[in-house]
Design a protein around this nucleic acid. Sequence first.
DNA 1: CGCGCATTATAAGCATGCTTATGATGTATG
DNA 2: CATACATCATAAGCATGCTTATAATGCGCG
Lengths: 157, 157
Amino acid sequence: MGTDNQPEPAASELEQPVNETAAKMSFELHSAAHLLRRNFDRRARAHGLSRSRWQVLWHLAREQGQKQAELAERLDVAPISLARQLDKLQEEGLVERRQDPADRRCFRIFLTETSKPALEVLRGLARETRSQALEGFSLVEVEQLQRLLGKLRENLV
Amino acid sequence: MGTDNQPEPAASELEQPVNETAAKMSFELHSAAHLLRRNFDRRARAHGLSRSRWQVLWHLAREQGQKQAELAERLDVAPISLARQLDKLQEEGLVERRQDPADRRCFRIFLTETSKPALEVLRGLARETRSQALEGFSLVEVEQLQRLLGKLRENLV
DNA sequence: CGCGCATTATAAGCATGCTTATGATGTATG
DNA sequence: CATACATCATAAGCATGCTTATAATGCGCG
């Protein structure tokens, strides 16, 4: 309130260029993520693994025994969508639903032995895609990118 | 070939940490892009604009008069998918198909006056989402992020 | 000119996701 | 204990995308 003719000089100077650069950044982010997904999907598809299927397996590999509702939340998918996917995966013997002994409403989801080869394949594909995406990046750049994306993510959670 | 006991020391030192950091980076990228999309989608949805609809409008705002096949390629969508989306948009009067006088097979797609308010809304929503995503970012950081993502995108094209 | 082939838009049928509704089961509160 | 409410999985119906197939039209080469 001291100087009434310079309310927020820094803001007005920065606002415009930031907004313009922000638009480009936003485009790059969408584009990069899209290409990364597509790159991986193509590889996975050659092994008969569609996105919706491998995402379930992938998350289960990190943590088994979750309830469907929990798993659906982590996958950011509607519970019913997961339920139908699990129907198919179970039919093929890749996962199994086990009754929760303490709560008869819910199932706990587990991977079967059958799923192990698929998971190995997925890990390999992820490495391939990442190494292609990050070709020519220094370790510092990768860390920088990770940090900035993490910050951005925090803002949106 | 000079020193046979140190084939590629730099590579073996870097490979492991890069791979680990790369995995985190990859996660952050997917996560950030997903949240950005979701953030925008929620806002857009409150205005009755679904993703598949506003994406078409958005690209047309940049360039009208394209053939369906061209537009589909830019949207990275199958031609048939775009065709059906256009059916609906045309039905609502937001876009129009004009016969190409030189090639009777194809249509040229144009926005109508009716679509202008929707586009204004979209521009506003994009600004809101971006400003939320980039809160606390310096201009330098935004530029850095844009540059790194662009580099990553180039690797995947 | 004419015939094969490419291109454009669309159709049919499937996969996947969502919203809303429902039945079974748990939990809390009077 | 009983009744109201919450939660879990699933069903029904719609939206959107894809693969493959098809009809109309353009194009190139003999």
